[in-house]
Simulated assay, not measured.
Amino acid sequence: MNIQIFGTKKCFDTKKAIRYFKERNIKAQFIDLKEKDLSMGELRSIKQAVGGIDNLIDPDAKDKDALALIKYIGEDAKDINLIENPQILKTPIVRNGKQATVGYQPDTWKKWE
């Protein structure tokens, strides 16, 4: 199992996800989205695994301008906009190879073990 957790150090659900894997002695790599952006390949892989870009966007994100912009731009520009504005992503994004989840989803992660 090759677990990657994308999120921020301040996100409560991201902290819970890190703790979930640590408690089960499952190695997980944490990627802080404030320090390192998702690559286009990572974003596309995650987007496909979770069923589209709309499942990645946090409707309660604080950056209302970026949130509004992403609703009205073309599909091609949405990926670039998400990479440039990770604060509107719903976190944590937990990836295991081609599988991925958005948010705290321990029931799904149990199936990966």
Rank of each mutant, 00 (worst) to 15 (best):
I93L: 08
G97V: 01
K98G: 10
L56Q: 00
L69P: 00
L82H: 01
Q87H: 05
D13A: 15
I73R: 06
K64T: 12
L43K: 06
I80V: 06
P86D: 10
L82D: 00
K62A: 14
K15C: 13
L38N: 04
R44Y: 12
D37C: 09
A28L: 03
L33W: 00
N96T: 07
I31A: 03
R24Y: 06
P92R: 05
I83F: 09
G52A: 08
E42P: 03
P86R: 02
I46L: 11
I31T: 10
I18R: 15
M40C: 03
G51Y: 11
N2M: 04
Y72N: 15
N85S: 06
M40H: 05
K71P: 05
I26E: 01
D13M: 11
N85W: 04
A49C: 14
M1V: 08
G74R: 03
G51P: 01
A77R: 12
G52T: 08
I93N: 00
R24V: 04
K47W: 02
E35G: 05
N2S: 08
K64H: 14
K64Y: 04
K9Y: 07
R44L: 12
E23K: 15
G7N: 08
N25I: 01
L38P: 02
N81C: 09
I80Y: 09
L43N: 02
N55Q: 14
G41P: 06
E35I: 06
Y20K: 03
